[in-house]
Design a protein around this nucleic acid. Sequence first.
RNA 1: GGAGGGAUGGCUGAGCGGUUGAAAGCACCGGUCUUGAAAACCGGCGUAGGUUAAUAGCCUACCUAGGGUUCGAAUCCCUAUCCCUCCGCCA
Length: 427
Amino acid sequence: MLDIKFIRDNVDLVKSGLGKKGFQFDHEQFQHLDEARKTALTHAQSLQAEKKKASKQVGALIGQGMSPEDAKAQVLGSIDADISEAELAAKEAEHALTQLLMTIPNMPQGAVPFGADESDNLEVLSWGEPTVFDFTAKDHVDLGEPFGLNFDLGARVAGSRFAVMSGPIARLHRALTQFMLDIHADEHGYEETYVPYLVNKDALEGTGQLPKFEEDLFKITGAQGDKDFYLIPTAEVPVTNLMRDTVFDGALPVKKVAHTPCFRSEAGSYGRDTRGMIRQHQFDKVELVQFVHASQSDAALEELTGHAETILQRLHLPYRKVMLCGGDLGFSAAKTYDLEVWLPGQQKYREISSCSNFEDYQARRMGARWRNPASGKPELLHTINGSGLAVGRTLVAVLENYQQVDGSIRIPDALQPYMGGLEWIRA
RNA sequence: GGAGGGAUGGCUGAGCGGUUGAAAGCACCGGUCUUGAAAACCGGCGUAGGUUAAUAGCCUACCUAGGGUUCGAAUCCCUAUCCCUCCGCCA
C-alpha cells in the first residue's frame, strides 16, 4: 500500500498519479476515515492513560498497607474502568482506514506513459526480425499435435484451458525450464528456490492479488481447519512473501529464481485465446524476484528485464520490449516492461514476460524490511519481479519460430544439450 | 488420528499478577586504550501509532493471534495458528 503520510501530504499528486492508472481516488472518503481514526484513537489513548495511572496508584496504596477495597474506592471512584468501547471504536476506525488503503493501487512512476490500454504501450526495443517463411506458417496447435501436444486429453481429465503434453513436446517443455533455471542460477546470480504452490490469504494480500482480485484465483476451501488456501497465480506470491514480517540483516540485493506452475481462473477472458496453450488455467513459469535497496530498484528492474531478455536472445526468438502505459499497469506495479515474442502462427507479438518494479508498495503491505547498517534502522525494501520466462508460451514460440516446411521442428542450439543432443523433432 | 511440550526484542534466552518495554548474552553503534586492528573496559541500542518544526520530548499500544478474569496480565483461563517430541498411518 501507499504510505499514509505521503497521501496526507500529497493529495493532489496521489490523485493525478492514480488517475493515470484509471483509478479514481476518493480523497474525501480517505480524509474522513483518517480523521475518524485520529479522533477515536486519541480518545481511547487518553482513557488508557487515565486507567494506567489509576491502576498504579491502587498498587502503590496496597503496597503501603491499605486494603485493596479501600484503595480501589479511593482512587477509582471517578474513573470509568470500562474503556473497551472506546478501544473497539478506535480499532474499527483503524480497520476501516486500512481496508481503504488496501484497495488503493500503487502509483505509476513519472516516466510511465499515459494511456488507457495496451494500444498505448510504448515500444522501447525490438530485437531480431519477425521470422519469415517461404511457406504458410502453422500455429503451435497444428505443429505440436503430431509430437504430443494434446488439448482433448486436457479437456478430458480437467476441462477447457488445460493441455496434456507427452513425448518430445513434454521433453522440450522440461528442457526449456531447465535451460532457464540454469542460466539464471549460474550466470545471473539468482538463488534457486522451491516454494509452496498453495498460499494463504495473507501472502496474496502482501503482493496485492487480494483483496481486489479474488475472482482471478483458484481457491481451496476448508482444507486447513477453517482457513482457505489459494493456488498461486504466479511464483511472485510465495517468493516475494519469503520476506514477509522480517527485518532482513544480510547484504542486498537478494535474488531468487523459482520454477512453479501457475493457476489462473481467467474469469472475464471468455472467448479470448481459446485455441492452443496461450491462455491456460495451469502453466509453468520461471520467475525472477529481487529484493533491493530503495535507491537501486530502477536499476534492478533494467537488470532483471535484461535477464529475461537473455533467454529470448539465446533461443534466437524475435521479441520486442514495451513499457506499459498507466492504464495497462498492474495494481501493485509502479513500472512494468512487457517482453513480447513474435509468434508466426498468429503474425503477432505476444506477451511472454512481464517485469515490474513495485518499489515499497508490496514491502509495506507485508512488512518486508531491511536493517540499514548505516542508521541501524529498518527500512522498507523494494521488490522487483519478472517472468524469465513463461515456459508454455516459450514452447509455443519455439515451435512456431523453428518450424520447417514439412512440419518438423528444429531444436534451438542452446536447447540441444537439454534434449540429449537431439537436433530435430520430426516424424 | 492419539499423547505430551513449546511460541518473549535482529538472534539466543530469563521472567510466571503490580515502578517490566521487559534480565542476561550475541550482534550492532559510539567512546577509552592502540601506530592500526583485536581483546578488555565504559556507554548506547525494539517496533508502530499519536502529538510536534523535530529522526527532541511526552502519550498509547505491542512478549504468536483473538477472546476472558482483574483496579492492574508477558505472567491466570479459553480458543485458534504455528513449531517440537513420541505412537499410528503414509509418498
